[in-house]
Design a binder for these strands. Structure first.
Lengths: 203, 203
DNA sequence: GTTGACAAACAGAACGGTCTGTCTGTAAGT
DNA sequence: ACTTACAGACAGACCGTTCTGTTTGTCAAC
């Protein structure tokens, strides 16, 4: 059933770009930053060399696009997670649990690869900074969705920052441990947030 | 003043090995994991290709040795830091401050590079796991030196683990921010530790 | 609604550079 | 003499980029 499938130019562009960007993230996840070569990307994307270089003339441009793409996907994932927070007794704990889930996904692994690589690559650093600002905005935006009116209490913003930092550390620790201590992490974050709410001083 | 400098074989080996291992760490710090090539290492070490390959036949062996070397240096640095903890009023805060300093050194950056790379490299992961166990032991060993009898209180061990995780996250955050929020980090860790000591339950 | 000129997307070969590992020869220690 | 440490050339693989040629879509004139 060979559909004639006539597509517009922009459709053609969009599909290959999408394929390449997704492949880039997949490579970051599977092979790390070092293993994310244009050849590997082209292979997993099932795209010719010409197609890749036409859409992304240089690897830097490709990576920059991939970073922004990743940020979008992560933000969307976060929002989706936010909307399925159960109406549990302890809304704070339920919310933190959902937030923590977003740190355990493959997408976060991909982000970490770029994050660390950006330490010694200024181009990467610049784009990544922009992307993470978007992510940070999403944290605050979904914060209201997840935590409801809790988000208006003084100290909440400060507490969230601290919680995110802690979760970052926990996720990093999980990389070496090759397992995540969910119970402990949640408890620690609960303590951090409760302390922040008790102290009640936002920056 | 050309000293004849007759050295034994093991001395010769030791100096080149030292130079190569130090250069490896320097490369990790300056150029990241991706930029840590055998060529770059040989260059910064000021050593010929033959010398390098004679001492470390493969890059994997070199990296494994470098990891253990790095662990030793970090452990030594940690111990040295522990011994210059001022006898301040608040021993806990002074101790945490010293601990936090060890997360802001270049050596930690080097460790992070390896840490992240180990996610997608089993060989690396195995050696790194061993090395980090050594580091963890050093944490506990210096814990007594830094925190004195505080280290015997119930909940302290658990608190330290949590603090280390938090500092890891703070350090990682600092990579993107390109600056460390010392005051905030210390405060957060203080809160974490005090909470752990209050709860008082060790795992 | 055809047609023809143009633009955009794609395919794949080719090139210069780099990286890792090997191999041969030389110097230094035992 | 013999073993160990070093020096440097080299081979093969791979990576990022550039280039030439082909296909596919677009749009205006007729």
């Amino acid at each position: 059933m060979t559909t004639v499938e006539r597509r517009t130019q922009s459709e053609r562009s969009a599909t290959t770009r999408q394929a390449v960007l997704d492949a880039t993230i997949a490579c970051l996840i599977d092979h790390g930053y070092g293993g994310t070569t244009t050849t590997a990307i082209q292979g997993t994307a099932g795209v010719s060399r010409g197609a890749l270089t036409h859409q992304f003339p240089s690897k830097n441009e490709l990576l920059a696009a991939a970073i922004l793409h990743l940020a979008e996907v992560r933000a969307a994932e976060m929002l989706a997670a936010a909307q399925r927070v159960p109406q549990a007794r302890d809304r704070l704990e339920a919310g933190l649990r959902v937030l923590w889930d977003t740190f355990k996904t493959d997408l976060f692994d991909a982000a970490i690869e770029l994050w660390v690589a950006s330490r010694t690559d200024d181009d990467l650093h610049a784009t990544l900074l922009e992307a993470e600002r978007e992510i940070a905005r999403q944290y605050h935006r979904t914060g209201a969705v997840i935590f409801g009116d809790l988000a208006d209490r003084p100290g909440f913003v400060r507490g969230m920052e601290s919680v995110v930092i802690h979760m970052r550390g926990a996720a990093l620790t999980g990389i070496l441990r090759r397992a995540s201590k969910d119970r402990e992490t949640i408890d620690e974050c609960l303590a951090i947030m409760r302390d922040a709410l008790r102290t009640g001083a936002d920056a």
